[in-house]
Design a protein around this nucleic acid. Structure first.
Length: 480
RNA sequence: UCCUCCUUAGCUCAGUUGGUUAGAGCAUCUGACUGUUAAUCAGAGGGUCCAAAGUUCGAGUCUUUGAGGAGGAGCCA
């Protein structure tokens, strides 16, 4: 007899066949109806137990959370909530779940807050919300690899342990095997990292970009998709200490090409889940609609989850230069009425969250690509424009999320790059290999970084980034 | 790191001006019922009121400090 997943059974065309299905009991109602889930779909299959002919010990062991194996027949359901159900002939308890113990966990059949579920992250994928989110996360991962593979990119693994923090993307986590109680010291009394495992100071990567550039300059089109680490003490719903980043890098591509790539990429992966994960999206959409009902009218969203995804897929992202954006903001109502915490007065100011939000959510009401930022508020490796004031940088801003993509055309001219590094006191010795790219066959090239979890947030409508990664790492939190 | 708010039963919360034995719903257990859909009905058990110190005749309630959580800011993806 064949084993089937719940997803297979629910989409089965053939009725009245002998089946085996294994899963976890969600609820057991009226001593007769098991709602069984195995993670293959958001939906449960109803298994009907013939309780008159089942021994009482077994019946007592069918409780929320228990793992069971069921042999039976797939039949048309007599009830109204489902088309098919399994008429149970034989049930085996694979793993018991003591109901008194279950009642102390989030497995108890009732609603929980997301905060409570987070405390039991090892069990939260037994819930509808988290199983849906994590299936979508998996699906998006696949869609990303598929997109790049279909478009001639090579997948490249950049190192997780790196030696320099030259990019200055953030605080790093140190990697060392030195004894923290008694580290070797040099003559000046500082920790002597030449005695450390790698013979130098090392840390977890904050970005694979610089290494990806080296591969773009030989393989042409490459991307990385891996974990990234930032030791910033950020306590927000949009930051993690450990997160996954997608970083494509392409030779002979300028900033305009970079924007085209990023936009096409975003639309492609979101289309993929619209096509392949309709059930999970429908569930999450409904969840958000319910949540919205408890909010005041002004805070309710104008579009449903699926409408939002469709909107991004079907509409062009608005491309606006930094200079144009500043003009819009300077003449905006909140700026004139001094509603912004940081008022926009002159060109050169860094845009704050409130400004990005205004542009995306109030002014344009669609995803926005901002480009050509002032050089002094952006990283050293970005290509200086002919005006010598701006660099070929671009950020994609999404409603509700803020910055989701950050990218640029890279500075390919050796002399300009060296000047930039000198001005920022970045020692050339640390990045000799990066400078080599500009010595031997340099060329225009570009790339961007996309925070995977922010993409998953947008795709699922989850509002806290801790709820779209299996085991979130944030300051003071590494329980699992 | 800064600002604001929160912490009472397994969970979500109520708890009056500081006053006797701290309550409800859900969950759990026991029983009833049996084509249910967050099943229903009856009953029962379940509390270090986050921690410490203080004010007071008396603190879940007021004060201080600390811990944890959430939201926002900054940093960014």
């Amino acid at each position: 007899m064949k084993s089937y997943t719940v997803a297979e059974l629910l989409s089965s065309e053939t009725l009245v066949q002998e089946v085996i299905v294994k899963g976890w009991v969600r609820t057991f109602r009226a001593n007769r109806f098991i709602a069984l889930n195995d993670g293959s779909t958001i939906h449960n299959i109803q298994c009907v137990v013939d309780f008159e002919n089942t021994n009482e010990d077994t019946l007592n062991r069918i409780g929320t959370g228990a793992a069971v194996s069921i042999k039976g027949e797939l039949v048309e359901s007599q009830g109204k909530g489902q088309k098919v159900e399994v008429q149970v002939n034989e049930i085996t308890i694979l793993g018991d779940a003591d109901q008194e113990e279950v009642s102390k966990t989030i497995l108890q059949p009732k609603r929980h807050t997301l905060e409570k579920l987070r405390e039991q992250a090892h069990l939260r994928t037994r819930t509808n919300t988290f199983s849906a989110v994590m299936r979508l996360r998996s699906s998006l991962s696949f869609a990303i690899h598929k997109y790049f593979n279909d478009n001639g990119f090579y997948y490249m693994h950049t190192p997780i342990i790196t030696a320099s923090d030259a990019e200055g993307a953030g605080e790093t986590f140190r990697v060392t095997t030195l004894d923290p109680q008694n580290p070797p010291l040099d003559e000046e009394g500082n920790v002597d990292y030449s005695k450390d495992f790698f013979g130098k100071e090392t840390n977890l990567t904050v970005s694979g970009q610089l290494e990806a550039e080296t591969y773009a300059m030989s393989l042409g089109k490459v991307y990385t998709f891996g974990p990234t680490f930032r030791a910033e003490n950020s306590n927000t719903s949009r930051h993690l200490s450990e997160f996954w980043m997608i970083e494509p890098e392409v030779a002979f591509m300028d900033l305009a090409g970079n924007m085209d790539l990023a936009e096409d990429f975003m639309k492609s992966v979101l289309s993929y889940i619209l096509e392949h994960n309709p059930d999970d999206l429908a569930f999450l959409e409904d969840r958000l609609i319910q949540e919205d009902k408890s909010k005041p009218q002004a805070e309710r969203s104008e579009m449903t989850l699926i409408e939002k995804l469709r909107f991004v897929v079907d509409n062009n992202f608005k491309r606006v230069s930094y200079t144009e954006a500043i003009d819009i903001l300077r003449n905006s109502k909140p700026n004139k009425k001094k509603k912004f915490k940081y008022l926009i007065n002159e060109w050169g100011a860094d845009l704050q969250s409130e400004h990005e939000r205004f542009l995306v959510e109030k002014h344009f009401k669609c995803p926005v690509i901002l480009f050509d930022y002032p050089a002094n508020i952006k990283a050293f490796y970005m290509r200086l424009n002919e005006d010598e004031k701006t660099v070929r940088a671009m950020d994609i801003l999404f409603p509700g999320i803020g910055e989701i993509v950050g990218g640029s055309q890279r500075e390919e001219r050796l002399d300009v790059l060296k000047e930039k590094m000198a001005a920022l006191n970045i020692p050339e010795e640390e990045l000799w290999w990066y400078l080599d790219l500009r010595k031997y066959g340099t060329a225009v090239h570009s790339g961007f970084g996309l925070g995977f979890e922010r993409l998953v947030m947008f795709a699922t409508g989850m509002s806290n980034i801790r709820d779209v990664i299996p085991y979130p790492r944030t300051p003071l939190n590494a329980e699992f």
